[in-house]
Design a protein around this nucleic acid. Structure first.
Lengths: 109, 109
DNA sequence: CAATATACATAAGAAAGTTAGGCATAAACA
DNA sequence: TGTTTATGCCTAACTTTCTTATGTATATTG
């Protein structure tokens, strides 16, 4: 999906996955989205990592480094605020879909 | 809707409305989208007009100026190519929604 | 032991908006 | 009748968000 539509959904995706999974690291998020979407949504690391940093700076994510052998993974989870924002983002997305359905006059199963 | 999600949908909206209505001018498109979406989707002219020009340059739209009193309206309609692209864009949007539904695990009525 | 996968990160540039103007005519209202 | 609001077009500076291209390093697989 070389799709400009994906733009703007990245934060929503991250927040939602962390809410569902509890705790994930960046690379894992990329793989998860890829598999959930049957290889349709391919997050790029150039977009993902800056987004994670921004969400952390915003206070919505908590980051913890963890050593796996000689490598360091950075796990993210939702802060209290992040859990609230996560739900808000999902609702915004649903409203967006509803609006678009009205404008584009399309049915969604 | 101060929503970054709308980004990327503008061309799809324009093409679809022109397909449905046949012939519209810029200002009319703004009003139509506003009313269809119950004031949720408010296109800005700063985004709309450049988009119309780009679609015309691409060969997807045909523009015709029409004098209304002393004012000039610019009507747009779909070219043959534009009609094809319009359908493609709608399909892309539907696929996008399907993918997002998988990733976000949400139900849409 | 070379290629691929895992895992993080940044930086330059492109794309698509927002915000803030500008210009002009027509209609509505006080 | 004069001012505000609506109609109708437009552009330019700036911002946000993403893509593309790198860089670095360890682990696994053939």
């Amino acid at each position: 999906m070389k799709n400009e539509l994906i733009k703007g959904t990245l934060k929503t995706i991250i927040l939602h996955l962390l809410e569902k999974e509890g705790r994930m690291y960046g690379y894992e998020i990329v793989q998860k989205v890829k598999s959930l979407s049957h290889d349709k949504v391919l997050l790029t690391e150039g977009a993902l990592y800056p987004a994670l940093h921004k969400l952390e700076a915003e206070g919505w994510l908590i980051a913890e480094k963890e050593s796996i052998g000689k490598r360091v993974r950075k796990y993210y989870s939702l802060s209290k605020k992040g859990k609230i924002v996560s739900k808000e983002k999902i609702n915004e997305f649903k409203e967006f879909i509803d609006s678009m359905r009205l404008v584009l006059n399309i049915e969604l199963k």
